[in-house]
Design a protein around this nucleic acid. Sequence first.
DNA 1: TTGCTCTTAATGCAAACGCATAAACTTTGC
DNA 2: GCAAAGTTTATGCGTTTGCATTAAGAGCAA
Lengths: 156, 156
Amino acid sequence: MTDRGRLANHAWEGLLSAHARMMKQFADTDVWQDLSMREYDVLYTLSKCTGPLRIGELHRHVLLSQPALSRMVDRLVDRGLIERSADPADGRGVRLSLTDAGRDRQRGIGRRHAAQVARAVTAELSRDELRQLAAICWKLAGADPSTGDDKEAPLP
Amino acid sequence: MTDRGRLANHAWEGLLSAHARMMKQFADTDVWQDLSMREYDVLYTLSKCTGPLRIGELHRHVLLSQPALSRMVDRLVDRGLIERSADPADGRGVRLSLTDAGRDRQRGIGRRHAAQVARAVTAELSRDELRQLAAICWKLAGADPSTGDDKEAPLP
DNA sequence: TTGCTCTTAATGCAAACGCATAAACTTTGC
DNA sequence: GCAAAGTTTATGCGTTTGCATTAAGAGCAA
């Protein structure tokens, strides 16, 4: 392995460790009400996107198998937090959107969670480090940092 | 929320997106043999540490509930990849270590996985970015980047 | 020592997950 | 226009996970 490869592995391991430490820290708090962090992640993803989302789109953002996601959507629909509607342009497709209750729930949890993220992350990193981390991670995520949208196969 | 807080949230969201994208990419490959990525994570953590590890120590590094980890250890012991032994200094404790087969398995998978990490990460980031990412993430992980060991409650 | 609390790991059980596959629909090629 | 191939979401089923609790040893005070 090249030196650069080793450096890449060291950086990736650092990212994994940071992820694990922070996730554990957040999981140990009381902000999630009756949702799991994964369920909140789905609500949050829906809240970020303007229009309704296909399940496949959602699946790109969420670290979960497609069947598991399909059933999680079932449960969230049953609980009145999201809505399934038929896609007029594609009979197979399903369009997902937050209900009003879902949006309220996401906002309530989101406000508290954002505060704890701010506390935990700013406690460790300077403003410059935050900027660098954001720029690098969004690059690694293959997305435009300003919009948060994925970039799919950038044209040459 | 302060401006710095918003920046922290933006950086954290970037880290989550990068994590999700990379994990999906790695999960879609054939390097894991008959292990799940979570099981490999346990073997890898054991391989990094010099001596046997308590289950509680392992639990600090792995994003899994204690009972789930306990049972995963069961299964890995049954499969002959790790060894449980009593802790002479503490009758409740259990000391975990890789068997020879477990070490072989970790190394075989680890080599291929490290190669794919190197490919995926260096494809997106320059050498300077890799260095910055490593330094910042290990800071966020609350650990010394050179050793990878956790720093617990740094003395004032 | 005894009795209490604290810590560590394991267990019962319902919920959630992943894999393989099916069902429903769209698209493609003839 | 129709069959074959591809795409998108859902379902069957065995395995794994998390929550609550238990079991067992450590630590400490009287």
